[in-house]
Amino acid sequence: MMGLGVAFATVSYMKAAATWFDEKGFSVASSLLLTAAMAGAVVGQAPLSALFNSVGWQEGLYYCAIIGVVFAIVYWLIVRDDPEEGHANLAEEQAAQNEQKNILKMVKKVISSRNNWLLMAYSGLIFTTIDAFGGLWGNSFFVQKYALTTTQASYFISCIFIGMGIGAPIMGKLSVKIRCVPIMFCCTLIGFVSLLAILYLHLNVTFLVIACLVYGIVTSSFMLVFVVGRKVNPLWVMATAVALINTGEPIFGGTFEGLVGMILDHLQPDVLGANYSVSSYEVAFSILPASIILALLTLCFVRERKC
């Protein structure tokens, strides 16, 4: 139910951004989605942990639900499908009105593009490292490796999300001047090195914070897949293309989260909770750098051509 509830978010945002802005404006507008998402992720680490410690997890989730309802009402009152005047893509929208009525043709147009499948695979493989490490296992890993409390460990995870929030608009601005694929390739290489440092080196606090921030900043470049998707797909199938590209994140993320857990259970089957040894975590996390290598290989076959 939670998954169904949030599935609309990226698709509706990207469709609205593509409708309201031209290609250059879309690059920046799409990057701000990640900044907002990472702001929420930061709140979901140390601040949410402190809230749960104060009022309990159930009442804390009630507060989260109330905030969500308030945002939904504000969104419904303010946001419009497209501008009444000065439509950035009015001619293209009008020309495609008949095409949009044929859902089967829209889907066929999207799934027949090899680029869309490659972008889906790349975004899924890259975001998997954030999902499996930052979203689930990283907190327990830091607790074991650095002898921290759960709240203390959450500050380091927050640094990853803060880095992504900072990096996203930077990547959006860069993509206006430079092609997206070279940016993603270079950032993915840096992300590979920084992730290895986080996982396999015993860093002091300063260097660990820097490594987490750098990892978050460069990994935010994965959002450029939607900018490439805007280039290689006509506007009238943009929502369908975003839906396909975005599918990689839950598929790969959910799969790799489970794989990490399965490896940990195999290495230490009698452990209660997430109190696995550091060496077990390091073995289980080896699939994350491997995921980045696969993402780099996938990126080599993406063709960033204007539709």
Rank of each mutant, 00 (worst) to 15 (best):
G248W: 03
I263E: 04
D265P: 00
L244P: 13
V260T: 04
S277M: 07
E257I: 12
Y281H: 14
Y276G: 09
S277R: 09
L244W: 15
G258F: 05
V283G: 09
V278Q: 00
G248S: 05
A243W: 09
N246H: 09
H266S: 15
N246C: 01
N246W: 09
P269E: 10
F252L: 13
N246I: 03
T247W: 00
G254W: 05
P250K: 02
I245L: 13
V260Y: 01
S279D: 13
G258A: 07
P269L: 11
G261L: 02
A243G: 14
F256V: 02
V283I: 15
G273R: 09
D265M: 06
H266D: 07
A274G: 04
G258Q: 11
F252G: 01
E249L: 11
V278W: 01
V278D: 01
I251K: 02
V260R: 07
E282W: 10
N246F: 12
Y281D: 12
T247Q: 02
I251Y: 02
I263C: 04
Y276N: 08
G253E: 15
I263F: 11
A243H: 12
S280W: 12
P269N: 15
H266N: 10
T247C: 10
A284G: 04
P269F: 12
S277Y: 03
T255V: 06
S277G: 08
H266I: 07
F256C: 09
M262E: 02
Y276P: 10
L267E: 01
P269R: 13
M262P: 01
G248T: 05
L267G: 03
P269Q: 15
L272E: 07
Y281C: 14
E257Q: 15
H266R: 07
E249H: 12
S279I: 13
G253F: 08
N275Y: 06
V271A: 06
T247P: 03
V283K: 13
G253P: 09
A274L: 08
L264Y: 09
G273T: 02
S280E: 06
G261V: 00
H266K: 11
Q268M: 07
L264D: 12
G258H: 10
P250I: 00
G261Y: 00
V260W: 08
G248F: 07
V271Q: 06
I245C: 04
I251L: 08
